[in-house]
Amino acid sequence: MNVSDLTLIELRQRLATTGLCFGCGLFRIRLHTPVASIATLLHDLYAHYPVYSEQGIDDYRIKLDWTSWSRRWIRPIVRFTADSPAPFTDIPIARALPTLEWGTNWCIATRAHHLLMLHAAVVERHGRGLILPALPGYGKSTLCAALTHSHWRLFSDEFGLVNPEDSMLIPIPRLISLKNQSIDVIRAFAPSAHLGPSFHGTHKGTVAHVRPPFNSIARMNEPAKPYWIIFPRWQANAPLTLEPIPKDRAFMLLATNAFNYEVLGELAFGAVSTIVKNCDSYSLVYSDLQQAVRTIDELVCSAHD
């Protein structure tokens, strides 16, 4: 059963009582919230996630609650917590969803130390993984959303999860969060993309979320071997360039940009070495999204043939 199989009333009820238990990749998340407007958004954006039974071992218990009885009615404010009180500031109800998404990412980043967490988007095609590491603002999520709607399977737009034992990529198909002009760029690029409402005035400006395609969630338990690393960078009016980058540089960029490279120590050193050894690495500068996707497709097809 998926979230979309619940009626909105059933979903609200679960969220407000035992919590909605659902699966995202390897993780089992239990989400509590009495906020009805959040339930409506989740019914749409979380539609494809499988609903789990109430009994199970939760990886993350996440709660979005009214800060107080009175703040429910006058300028409503909600609070994000995870297990115990989390050190987060309260937020107006209008920005609850972006906070829920960032807060959940925060929980994963601080706790999933059984896995190596690269700071990267990951997609897969023909069983081969493409890692798109990037610094924020370089257009990683935009490119990831575009690829996800052009025959690629979404693994993640934020966490390149790696099993440190065998260096395989592990999917965690969470919502793709798009910022500012990227929102319209993706609407134009992929009319089939399912976007949630735009939230204005967040730290990142305007934010909207792309729902992961059904296929990405249905196959979220299938890992993939990494094959390519492309460091993308969007630059206005720049002609497209795709240049191989040396392995030592790829190693350094991947390791220094990971969430928990230090924590995993030797395991992480081994895993990043293996990834870099097995992957062709490139840097991609682009201004035109269509052209960037086409270039990546060509690269992949030449490897596949």
Binding site: P246, K247, D248, F251, M252, F269, S273
Partner: peptide
């Protein structure tokens, strides 16, 4: 060690 052309880790 991990050796590449110009550098090693």
């Amino acid at each position: 060690w991990e050796h590449w052309r110009d550098q090693s880790a």
